[in-house]
Design a protein around this nucleic acid. Structure first.
Lengths: 198, 198
DNA sequence: TTATTATTCGAATTGTTAGTCGAAATTTAA
DNA sequence: TTAAATTTCGACTAACAATTCGAATAATAA
């Protein structure tokens, strides 16, 4: 008899616990500043135990990113699958991401910001990231084509919205969920010419 | 007789050389990944010599940032001093920054991106950075007040433009200088509603 | 119960790197 | 020319941190 279902589950719990502690330390001390000793402390295990569950420090980091991106992606799939106008789908995607971010504060900022500081390819989470960005790009392009967005180069819009959206979701002390009103406001604020509104 | 003018100058040259090599290594290996041995190699000195010119690795980094920001700021001062419409001044500021960036490729991306990865306060270059951001904010606010920009929350516009501008200056392989046409395009692309143009 | 397997962990090991030392080479100036 | 000052640098040290070791403890199953 090998390991039981329950045992497997508990193992996953312990791994998650380690990942949680690691995230805390990574965020506080940075990727290099974080030590395995601190991660061990912060997650309530002895240092050597970490190596029972993960091959290396790098693998701990990878697991955080892999897990996180997989979660985002899976929560997004149903939203993307719905056939609707590009603009509505786009708004729903942003809302869903914001929901995720609110569920696990800290994790998502990490997910979106850490990659800049990482070199190694063959990181499986990059695949999720690329898929997400491709979907958003696609929605923007379709939306622009159908006149649902201003006739801006979708690339430009992507970058501008990126900055704005990160600000909305990650900054500030907002505790309430992000609504479609919020996202529509974002879009309107970005593209409204005062000569028309005033 | 103490050190001569020429000697002082040569010393500065050597420091600059070290800073150049350090920048290369920092960009390639990251702040923590960069070793003093590599920096020594890359700049053509022995490791111990680095410590003759700088107290520590951290001081090398500080010097890069301090130098860089000071240069930006000093090149910007005359542009800012000119009394003109906020929008024109704003455009000129962006152009001047782009010029700087083209003069020393690599340095400016570093200047604008590294700060996120740094903790320690009392970094004198932060002062330049804050001054620059304050000026830009001020120009946006004045410009919005005078109707030269769309009636957007200047904070939002700041963030959106930040992303776009970085894209314009740092990405791509563009070798020609950034013109006011480019910047005006940027602004127009961002704020133009298709219902008006088409 | 008892043998086997899974889990835990502090101590030891190993490798890495920032920073120091002391001597040598070079430059300066008298 | 030569003594003092400046500059250079390879080898050494000390600290720190990732990873491994090996033994102990706990859970499982027969």
């Amino acid at each position: 008899m090998s390991i039981s279902e329950r045992q497997l589950e508990e193992r996953k719990m312990r791994q998650a616990r380690i990942l949680d502690g690691a995230l805390t330390v990574f965020k506080e001390k940075g990727l290099d500043g974080a030590t395995m000793d601190e991660i061990a402390n912060s997650s309530g295990f002895g240092k050597a135990t970490l190596y029972y569950y993960f091959k290396s420090k790098e693998e701990v980091l990878s697991a955080i990113l892999e897990d996180g991106w997989q979660n985002i992606w899976e929560s997004l799939e149903p939203v993307i699958a719905v056939q609707d106008s590009p603009r509505k789908t786009f708004v729903n995607v942003l809302i869903k991401i914001a929901e995720n971010a609110q569920d696990r504060p800290g994790l998502f900022e990490f997910l979106f910001n850490v990659p800049k500081a990482i070199k190694l390819d063959k990181q499986p989470w990059k695949d999720y990231q690329h898929r997400l960005y491709a979907v958003i790009q696609g929605l923007l392009e379709d939306g622009v084509k159908k006149g649902e967005f201003p006739q801006v180069d979708p690339q430009l819009m992507f970058k501008a919205l990126g900055g704005l959206f990160m600000g909305l979701v990650f900054m500030g002390d907002r505790k309430e969920p992000v609504t479609d009103k919020d996202v529509e406001n974002l879009l309107n604020e970005l593209i409204t010419d005062p000569k028309i509104n005033n």
